[in-house]
């Protein structure tokens, strides 16, 4: 039953959106627009659901004195402050000056500081990696070292050669492998979409 409902939804919405892309027709365009509105609502509901689950998880942590209580309190307080700033009477939501201040003055610098530490942590992880998995870590470290050398900010003719080498690595081996993966993913998505549209799954084989 659940499978037939899902297949039905895919059978109606998939061709509708494809038709809207291929032909100019106000009725089809309106129907595809309505499907898109439903998708927006679905995404909003998922976001609210995710937030509620996070709150529930940290409240449970606090109630059971399980895990890092201080971190749970910080998360809940942070969420409360943003919600109050954005939802209080007279607030203009995400464009409210209080929300903008919290985001620009607190959230962005704190997150930037945390990500700035990644450099140190990554190097520490490499050191530990050598102790745990020598072969894989050696391969990664060798590739990283080659790329770092190619990207060294050196001037003059040597700098030009290094930059040309870095561009070649980016465009040929890295670009080729990455695009191969993307093409593979694209084919898989197309095949699975076609199977869904035709109502096929593994049980039918």
């Amino acid at each position: 039953m659940r499978r037939s409902i899902l297949t039905g939804i895919v059978l109606v919405t998939g061709p509708l959106v494809l038709l809207d892309l291929m032909i100019v027709n106000p009725s089809v365009h309106g129907a595809a627009g309505a499907v898109n509105e439903l998708l927006v609502l679905l995404a909003a509901a998922a976001a609210v659901g995710g937030g509620a689950t996070l709150v529930a998880h940290h409240v449970r942590n606090l109630a059971a004195a399980d895990g890092d209580s201080a971190a749970s309190i910080v998360v809940l307080l942070g969420m409360a402050v943003i919600l109050v700033a954005g939802l209080r009477p007279g607030s203009s939501g995400s464009s409210d000056p209080a929300v903008l201040w919290l985001v620009a003055g607190l959230l962005a610098p704190i997150a930037a500081s945390v990500f700035a530490l990644l450099f140190i942590f990554l190097l520490a992880a490499f050191r530990r990696g050598f102790a745990l998995r020598v072969r894989e870590t050696s391969l990664m470290a060798a590739a990283a070292a080659v790329v770092i050398v190619l990207l060294l900010p050196v001037g003059g003719q040597a700098g030009d050669w290094l930059a040309a080498g870095a561009a070649w690595v980016r465009d040929v081996p890295l670009g080729g492998a990455f695009r191969g993966l993307l093409i593979g993913i694209g084919i898989l998505v197309a095949v699975s979409a076609a199977r869904s549209l035709m109502g096929l799954d593994a049980d039918d084989e």
């Binding site: 050191r127 020598v134 990207l151 900010p153």
Partner: peptide, 27 residues
């Protein structure tokens, strides 16, 4: 600026080389 970038890159190379050689030495 290029100088902080260079220092960071050289430090990364030094850490990778030190960790690699230490492992090789133990082996």
């Amino acid at each position: 600026g290029p100088l902080p970038m260079l220092i960071g890159m050289l430090a990364a190379l030094a850490v990778l080389a030190e960790a690699g050689f230490r492992r090789l030495g133990r082996r």
